[in-house]
Amino acid sequence: MKLRLHHVNVVSDDMGELHEFYSKALGLSMAPLPPMIEHLGHQNDRTETEDDDKWQQNVAFFDASGDSDGDQQIHAGRRQAYLGARMGHAVNPLATGHFAFRTDDLDEVRKHLTDSGIPFSDYGEWAVKDWDQIFLTDPAGNVIEIHQILGSSDH
């Protein structure tokens, strides 16, 4: 079971404040948003600028790789206090934020967690197109995402 840190997700009620801090105060450049899935089930590949502007009111990805060849990112999102409950999940990744690992075998991770008696919320492909995601909490209540890119075992 191989995990590698992929991103840290921070949330706020004020997206402008997050944009300002991560782009200006820390000097991180915005990374292009991958195709996202709207929570009503409609897909949006954001091929037009208007779409990017609309999405960036709720989410932004910043490149935090520095000089490395990795793809470490900061994901900034609008706080959604009731997301977990609305979607029927015990874990809400957008209430306080989370950190995320990427894996090449999410089924192995699911089996390991189940065998270890560790509960998790299986969100599947719900926010980012082609990302299969689960969320769990550590013993201190910190939210952790583990995801795999669908149809790929080498990302």
Rank of each mutant, 00 (worst) to 15 (best):
V10C: 04
V10E: 03
V11Y: 01
S12N: 05
S12Y: 05
S12K: 05
M15A: 09
G16H: 04
L18N: 06
L18C: 07
L18E: 05
H19F: 04
H19S: 12
E20I: 00
F21L: 13
Y22W: 14
K24M: 08
K24L: 05
L26K: 07
L26M: 15
L26S: 10
L28I: 01
L28K: 03
P32W: 02
L33Q: 07
P35D: 09
P35Y: 01
M36Y: 10
M36I: 15
E38A: 09
L40R: 08
G41C: 13
G41M: 11
H42M: 13
R46A: 11
R46S: 11
T47W: 04
T49H: 12
T49K: 12
D51M: 12
D52S: 12
D52E: 13
D53R: 15
K54Q: 08
Q56G: 10
Q57I: 03
N58I: 09
A60T: 14
A60D: 04
F61T: 03
F61I: 11
F61N: 06
F62E: 12
D63L: 03
A64Y: 09
S65C: 10
S68E: 08
S68V: 06
G70L: 14
D71I: 14
D71K: 13
D71N: 15
D71F: 09
Q72A: 08
Q73T: 02
H75Y: 06
A76M: 11
A76F: 08
G77S: 03
G77L: 01
R78F: 11
R78V: 05
Y82E: 15
R86N: 15
M87P: 04
H89L: 10
A90G: 08
A95L: 15
T96F: 02
F99K: 01
R102D: 03
R102N: 00
R102Q: 07
D104W: 01
D104Y: 01
D104A: 04
D105C: 04
